[in-house]
Design a protein around this nucleic acid. Structure first.
Lengths: 309, 309
DNA sequence: CCAGTTATACTCGTTTAGAGCATTATTCCC
DNA sequence: GGGAATAATGCTCTAAACGAGTATAACTGG
């Protein structure tokens, strides 16, 4: 059978475009922050990636740098309507430096923790977690029918949110979002019926927030073994700037001395010779990314010296 | 714009279905081992995964267990013809135990090292590497125009194949295949013009061998941090059987005592109480996978205690 | 009984990772 | 000019993880 003739299938390209500015991670959005840049894949596109570039650059006037594929899905219940038209969504993670140029149209950079307030642990555990999310998750789990199910749900919550004896794991962004979705604590879970989205983060259209969660999770995992942070850095930077960027992405603080040790012993950077006329404190050496590492090491990378407890 | 109407797009689902039997890794194929199981995604399918299951089970009569997405692509030069029809290929990695039932039709399990003879280092470096591949790569690199390019190509070869001061890295399956492709050392690179495929492994149709390489690379990387090996194991097994399976996938041997230490201290398995009436040697305890770990640990996993040099 | 084979227990030295202390070099403010 | 505050940077300590090796136990087949 010659495929495609009997099938009305369209492909949609979606980008999670990330930049870190002034120590804050941001994501490019359109429609008042309610959607990620996206557009249909068309016959004229050379490849999926070039199609993505076309759309994003058109919608946001911002060029894409590093790109990596996230996930492809086509679940029937996505659009809500069981129409004849079937859409395959192909999502990407893109990293860039925030440019001077004004984004086009309604495109705008948004702080990503506006969408996931419970994910930023840099200044300690966000109060919304112990105050609201955890008690509600507990109540939700307790409301389950069987004893086994109650235990199972609470177990999942404990792992995802670092409760009981489990430590907080910053990589579980997607699991946390999905748990909140399952428990109907995010607006997307009950469209139109209205929920207090103030507490559970800013909502997005369709499943864009889930895709964003996927992107954040991937990026948090990846910075630990691949030198991708540098895609987000300016040409030269101090080690503290680099550290702040990593911390912004990971949503948690790292041990400064150990971070330096790691970066230097892995020879990820080289001195430029210059110093910064910095904000308060002793002047810092300026570094640049040592591009050689990309060639030398197909493997290993930047492990985060995260704290134990 | 309502997408899809102006575009004639079809989606194809492709599976890299892996099993390990008698210490040998195998992949499910159709058409005399020249193709991976695949089929079009259709409107009737509930999701991409369920569509994949339908096709593979129909073509091979073998049920799929664990499934994970590999990659989605739609490069224009794939099919060779620049036709009006555009195909998006979505590939998956699937793990299973080889079943008793005869595969349907022309479906058959094939040793995956038949396709990549240079990837099996369990009994030492395959002779094809020093005897043929390396000299030819050297000649290929030396034939480049500029001095810079010569150095660059040889550098890439050295990293990918563990030459010069670089150690062999079993995860670089895809990089190695692509290098051989670039150098026109695999049959796929010059379709119809005929090459000695005996040396450079069995060829496959279209880019199926590249997809297989992607699957192997993913699996080799994944067994190091996630307990996915158990998807390939029978319900109970000895630690040596487990080790042999890991070694079959990784294409290299591991240190037996350290492997046991790792598996046990991570509490991946539990004793069944039974022993094996084994082949020669002292009887071994039988273990089963401790399914609890899947719930307990969303992160971390089974690092391989690989040898240094 | 012996050779061969596998299972299993332990030890040793090196490397890595988390944590903390100490010192140096600036700016800001009084 | 003298702190206080802020950063940068150098160094040590400890525990865990990792690669490697030794030793011993339990079985099979001749």
């Amino acid at each position: 059978m010659k495929a495609g003739q009997r099938n009305s299938i369209a492909a949609e390209l979606i980008a999670v475009l990330v930049a870190v500015t002034a120590g804050q991670p941001r994501v490019m959005t359109i429609r008042q922050g309610k959607a990620l840049p996206s557009g249909p894949f068309e016959l004229g596109h050379r490849s999926l990636q070039s199609g993505l570039r076309d759309w994003v650059e058109q919608q946001t006037r911002h060029p894409l740098g590093y790109i990596e594929q996230l996930y492809t899905f086509a679940d029937r219940d996505r659009a809500g309507d069981a129409s004849e038209q079937r859409v395959i969504s192909i999502s990407y993670l893109a990293l860039t430096r925030e440019e001077q140029a004004e984004p086009a149209d309604k495109a705008a950079w948004r702080y990503w923790y506006d969408y996931f307030p419970w994910e930023d642990h840099r200044t300690g555990v966000p109060s919304v977690l112990p105050d609201t999310i955890v008690p509600r998750l507990k109540a939700w789990a307790d409301a389950a029918d069987s004893r086994a199910l109650r235990h199972h749900l609470w177990q999942r919550a404990a792992i995802a949110f670092g409760l009981e004896d489990y430590a907080w794991n910053e990589d579980l962004v997607l699991q946390r979002y999905e748990l909140l979705y399952e428990a109907s604590f995010v607006e997307e879970a009950h469209r139109g019926r209205g929920a207090d989205n103030a507490v559970f983060g800013r909502a997005m259209q369709a499943d864009h927030r889930r895709i964003l969660a996927t992107g954040i999770a991937r990026l948090r995992a990846k910075i630990k073994y691949r030198p991708v942070v540098f895609e987000l850095m300016p040409p030269t930077f101090t080690l503290l700037q680099l550290q702040r960027t990593v911390e912004a992405l990971a949503g948690r603080l790292v041990h400064k001395q150990n971070f330096r040790r790691l970066v230097e012993q892995q020879e990820l950077v080289e001195e430029t010779g210059a110093l910064t006329a910095d904000t308060g404190g002793r002047p810092a050496k300026l570094f640049r990314f040592r591009h050689g590492v990309l060639a030398e090491r197909a493997t290993s990378g930047t492990k985060l010296p995260l704290s134990r407890a």
